Computed example of a mutant assay.
Amino acid sequence: MLEARTYRAESIQAALLLAKAELGPDAVILDVRHLEPRHLLGGPAVVELVAAPGSPAVQRGPGTPGIPAIPAIGDPVVLGLTALGLSPRFAAELVQAYRQGKGPSRDLRRVLAARIAEYITVAPWLPLGGRMILALVGPTGVGKTTTALKLAAAARTDGFAVQLISCGGDEAHDARSETLARSFGLPFTRAANGVELQRALRMTSGQLVLIDTAGANPFDPRAIAALEGVLASEHVIVALTLSVGGDLEETLEAARRYAPLRPRALILTKLDETRRPGLALGLAERLARPLLALTTGTRIPDDLVSASTPALTELAAWTLERLERRAAVRPPS
């Protein structure tokens, strides 16, 4: 049996270089995982990579005739996906599905969708068959207010009774939110604290109630605790709202700090403000919460995409095509 060895570095690429320097260019990458920073604030992210010397005993065979074998983790396209946060297994299966689906008489979207559905759960945000109270929480600047307005406007267009509640924001923020809400004909109310929020919830009969919370610094335990107190109700579904335009590890770390709020859903915003929208796939997989919606701009409610496997499939296909093109023109090392 070949001995597996573990390497740690600040990135997958750096860890891979260490492994190949010691084990040779044919080293087989067995696993990759992202470790939490060692320090509460400012600690560097660490990647742990497990590899073994190349050998026919551990190399994959040619696979089923006509269907590409699952690519190695060292495949440049797989590396590109893992850099977007996808697990090595999910990344390798997506690349296999993409290459399989591009063959003659293959349905690319179908095979990609089958893989995505195994790793990412999507859920409806419309209150089908009942009432839904959805509270959007997340860091300042991720677009919670705009997203809440988009969801409310889209739901109203579909015939649902909606209610917007701005909770815990400052006076200027609430005034701007109310002006926007009124301009779209959306019912709006303010709640300064948990007591007022509970009163507002009792007074509304809206099928979809959207609670827009003030941005909370995820690294300030007091801010998280205060928000937890405001939203302390079993009827409120907390939706963690994050931008895909930031650093992957910092975004994941921020998400972990919202754990006391027990978020049961995920909304990802600002896919239009990054050159790596594929991060949405990695975040959705890594955070393991049902994905409700994606936002792609500031227009209300137009720049809103309800999360679905077909929508994620289009995003995956675009990302894979881009990574394959980049790998094809990369000069050999």
Rank of each mutant, 00 (worst) to 15 (best):
D302C: 00
E118S: 06
E3R: 13
L23H: 01
A172L: 15
L312D: 07
S306Y: 11
A280N: 07
R262Y: 11
P290R: 08
R256M: 00
H34T: 11
Y119A: 05
L23W: 02
A114P: 01
H39V: 11
R109F: 07
V122Q: 13
T309I: 15
T296G: 00
A223W: 08
K144N: 05
I73G: 03
A57P: 01
P332D: 10
R106W: 06
P290H: 10
T313W: 10
S105V: 07
A259C: 00
R156L: 01
L108F: 05
K270T: 03
P53C: 07
R286N: 07
G169R: 14
S243H: 04
A154N: 12
I12C: 13
G101W: 02
A316N: 13
G74M: 12
I120P: 04
I300G: 00
L266F: 05
G185S: 06
R99L: 14
D303M: 10
A27M: 02
R286L: 00
L94G: 12
V122P: 12
Q96I: 04
V238G: 10
T251M: 04
D75F: 01
A254Y: 03
K102P: 00
A114L: 09
L2T: 05
T189N: 09
F219T: 09
D302L: 06
T269H: 03
F219W: 10
A307Q: 12
G141S: 06
L304M: 01
P25Q: 09
P332M: 08
S87W: 13
E228P: 01
Q198K: 15
A214W: 10
V244T: 15
P124A: 01
A181H: 09
P260F: 13
L30K: 03
A52P: 11
L240Y: 09
F219M: 07
L134I: 01
L323V: 02
Y98D: 08
I133L: 09
R131T: 03
Q59E: 14
L210Y: 02
A14V: 03
L283I: 06
G24H: 02
S11G: 07
T6E: 10
A191L: 03
R222E: 15
P37H: 07
P88G: 00
I29K: 03
A9R: 07
L41A: 13
Y98E: 11
P331H: 10
G159E: 05
A14Q: 10
G80C: 10
G246C: 05
Y98K: 07
A21M: 02
T157I: 14
I12H: 13
D31V: 08
A223D: 12
L186Y: 03
A223L: 12
